[in-house]
Write a protein that binds this DNA or RNA. Structure first.
Length: 750
DNA sequence: AACGCGACTTAGCAACGCACTA
DNA sequence: TAGTGCGTTGCTAAGTCGCGTT
């Protein structure tokens, strides 16, 4: 059965992704969802306040009436319904599973190792995990190169921080020459140390706090705002918000109703009473002078002299040095985002109901500082106070505040190169590798579950199949009206799939068409097993388009189930696993020994691309795509001409040599031959580049590379084929994956 | 069980900036 | 020397998932 899961070319490339630009998305969305939503609300509850909590009971009751029919029309009452069914079913389930051995100890036994030790989320097992899993595979060979003595402070009782020799290893190879001097610093190999085991994230934390957005600078008085054709001076508060709008004038979304409505509403809140009285219609507002002014400003910025630019750069560098680092457990670590998000107009992705709302300015009074008690606490700007200072070493953030659009919390955290992020990342891939060991068993089980007599078990099993086969996201439910209408696996609605008993010569085809995270469209047509197909038909029976496909399932149920199958298993682990295993397979398949380096890199990119397609990582084609493609083609053509010239010359040189037979002409032939060769190589390189770029038009490789692909696979591949890692990972990426670069050797197996 | 929240990962795009070219 | 093209970096939205509360 695992054959079915090998994400081969067919599956990966199978679905055409017709999504492109945002426009497309928006359009798609507009007719596909918006209207439904509206109808739904109306038709369902006739009218009114069904948001009122008191209404809930009513709903519950209503639900109960039809609760039995899995077939009756249940609209958005699923939740309540689910609840009830759940209780019953859950009980059943517990019994069931014991009975029929789904949670069979046999299985557990069959993979004793992975089922027992490391529980990735139970940090206590981390240490062991590492010992048992890695030490055998990645001898920290480097460790001994120098007998660095470490001063470990992290764990009471263990040796200390490794202050190892420089980690130049990888860099010397290619950057050797220029690097020599800028590499004096020794890199800390946290991955050679023990980890915390008890939910503690650090013992010591000191930082300088956040950098706030610069205060608003009022416009020069010559830059005017006009209302109804008449110039009007705005109060600074109102003016600031107006400038946010003015800066976006060129964007399409300032023409959207929701955007304008939200903006105007929030803008009015900032106005003085008089302003509010005067400015009553956004259509009568003329921001063009402001807009022109900002354009001029940005031109001016571009045109600044070198010195001025240098000055700014230095100032930024100063800020970075001061605020961009913290001390965590005796190591200086880079902070990811030390600047507080500046105020502006919110633009969510896709059709966001809150687009255009004012994202307010964050003040020190909004800020919570987290640091250790024994550290020097950052000072708030003069005359201000922090909202709170706390000392919570069970979390990793340094600063937090609550954002006003969704009311969610934002954080300042460390850079991916930091120990705290790196360990977690490493751990993530270890969990995925554990899944590798038991994935066959899990697949066997969900296939069994397709036959279950319990609807909820079958739903769970089909959903899991999609998550596994198609790398769908889990799909938490979202609060309606708070965010764009997007879905993942568990939240798929009937309207998102179409069933074709037969389609283009294939049987049992499911067509997916929905908006996923970031309102990126997922479109795919996949043949599925008959059982899955039949189940889907059943799940869809007597439902409306906007009913949940899996009405007896949600992410929490699914994850609870997964947790029982493997310690630490959640839906997203399947994405990581399938992405990484696909990369490994594809690399094996695509790399050929006799290719040159550019060709090997093309193979790598293709393997990477297969993963990106699997995970549906799309991008809008770069605006300059066509042009740059043309340029490249022109280069190729030129190179071709050059090649034929060179060939001609070679030919005549040969002819010449035939006649003259002296050393000099022989040498000339040799030279010409080499020239031809060189040009051929260059030509090939260009052609490879063109292919790569073309294939990459709408696909973003970065996301999978950064988040889903076990870096050790790539590092091993590089080592195996003698490719410098720099060809695969840029500087930032090498910093993030330093652990992998250091520990993976060419035999690494995911 | 469901909710709401908190913490943390994953995501695409726009601005930036640097090397190369015209 | 300015302009281009393109990779890199910054930004922050939007997910996942676990936990405590109700």
């Amino acid at each position: 059965m695992s054959g079915d899961h090998s994400h081969n070319e067919d599956q990966i490339m199978g679905g055409s992704r017709i999504n492109d630009s945002h426009k497309h998305k928006d359009k798609y969305k507009e007719h596909k969802h918006k209207d439904y939503k509206r109808d739904k609300e109306k038709s369902k509850h006739g009218n009114s306040d069904y948001k009122d909590p008191s209404d809930k009971k009513y709903k519950d009751k209503e639900k109960m009436k039809h609760k039995d029919g899995s077939t009756e029309k249940n609209k958005d009452k699923h939740k309540e319904k689910r609840k009830e069914d759940k209780i019953k079913l859950l009980n059943d389930k517990v019994k069931k599973e014991k009975e029929n051995g789904f949670v069979s100890p046999l299985h557990v036994k069959s993979e004793p190792e992975e089922d027992f030790y490391h529980s990735p989320k139970h940090e206590k097992s981390l240490k062991r995990e590492r010992d048992e899993d890695y030490d055998s595979e990645f001898k920290p060979k480097k460790i001994k190169t120098e007998n660095d003595k470490k001063v470990k402070k992290r764990k009471p009782g263990d040796e200390g921080d490794i202050k190892p020799k420089k980690t130049k290893t990888q860099k010397e190879v290619t950057d050797g020459k220029k690097k020599a001097k800028k590499e004096p610093e020794e890199k800390w190999k946290w991955w050679e140390e023990e980890r915390y085991t008890d939910g503690v994230k650090w013992k010591f934390l000191e930082h300088k706090g956040p950098v706030f957005a610069p205060p608003y600078e009022p416009l020069p008085s010559r830059v005017k705002f006009y209302y109804d054709g008449k110039p009007m001076r705005l109060s600074p508060e109102a003016e600031e918000v107006a400038t946010f709008f003015a800066k976006m004038l060129d964007h399409e979304y300032t023409t959207k109703d929701i955007f304008r409505k939200n903006f105007f509403k929030d803008w009015r809140k900032e106005m003085t009473a008089e302003e509010k009285a005067t400015i009553t219609d956004l259509k009568k507002c003329n921001f063009t002078e402001m807009s022109e002014y900002f354009k001029a400003q940005s031109e001016a910025r571009k045109a600044m002299s070198k010195e001025e630019k240098q000055k700014i750069k230095e100032e930024n560098e100063r800020l970075l040095q001061k605020y961009g680092y913290c001390i965590m457990d005796n190591h200086k670590e880079r902070i990811a985002n030390f600047r507080i998000e500046p105020p502006g107009l919110f633009r969510g992705r896709g059709d966001h109901p809150k687009m255009g709302m004012l994202k307010r300015r964050i003040r020190p009074e909004d800020i919570i500082i987290n640091c250790s008690k024994d550290s020097k606490c950052p000072e708030p700007p003069p005359g201000t106070k922090w909202k709170e200072v706390r000392h919570d070493n069970k979390v990793t953030w340094l600063v937090s505040w609550t954002e006003n659009i969704q009311g969610s919390i934002k954080y300042i955290m460390l850079n991916p190169s930091s120990r705290i992020k790196g360990e977690k990342d490493w751990q993530k891939y270890e969990t995925a590798r554990r899944l590798k060991k038991c994935v066959d068993r899990i697949r066997a089980q969900y296939r069994e579950d397709w036959k279950s007599k319990e609807m909820r078990v079958r739903q769970r099993a089909v959903a899991l199949y999609f998550i596994d086969k198609l790398a769908l996201r889990a799909g938490n439910e979202k609060e309606e009206g708070e965010t764009a209408d997007t879905v993942g696996c568990c939240s798929l609605r009937v309207e998102h799939i179409n069933l074709y008993p037969e389609n283009e010569g294939q049987e049992y085809v499911v067509e997916f068409d929905f908006l996923g995270k970031d309102s990126i469209r997922y479109y795919n047509k996949v043949p599925v097993e008959k059982r899955v197909f039949k189940n889907l038909q059943l799940f869809m029976e007597n439902k409306e388009p906007d009913d949940d496909l899996f009405d007896r399932l949600n992410t929490s149920i699914l994850n609870k189930h997964l947790q029982e199958l493997m310690d630490g298993l959640t839906a997203k682990v399947f994405r990581t696993y399938n992405a990484s295993i696909t990369l490994q397979q594809q690399l094996k398949e695509l790399t050929t020994a006799d290719e040159n380096i550019p060709a090997k890199i093309l193979s790598y990119n293709r393997a990477n691309r297969a993963v990106a397609i699997l995970c549906n990582h799309q991008r809008a084609p770069p605006k300059t795509f066509e042009k740059s493609m043309q340029n490249l083609q022109a280069k190729i053509d030129a190179k071709k001409d050059q090649l034929s010239d060179a060939k001609r010359e070679l030919k005549s040189a040969k002819a010449d040599a035939k006649v003259r037979k002296d050393e000099k002409t022989k040498k000339a032939v040799e030279n010409k031959r080499k020239a031809v060769q060189r040009i051929e190589e260059q030509l090939m390189k260009l052609e490879v580049q063109a292919t790569d770029r073309e294939e990459n038009k709408q696909i973003a490789l970065g996301t999978s590379k950064l988040n889903y692909l076990d870096p050790r696979i790539s590092v091993a591949w590089c080592k195996k084929w003698g490719i410098p890692v720099e060809k695969i990972y840029n500087k930032t990426q090498r910093e993030k994956f330093a652990w992998a670069i250091d520990m993976a050797d060419e035999d690494y197996e995911f």
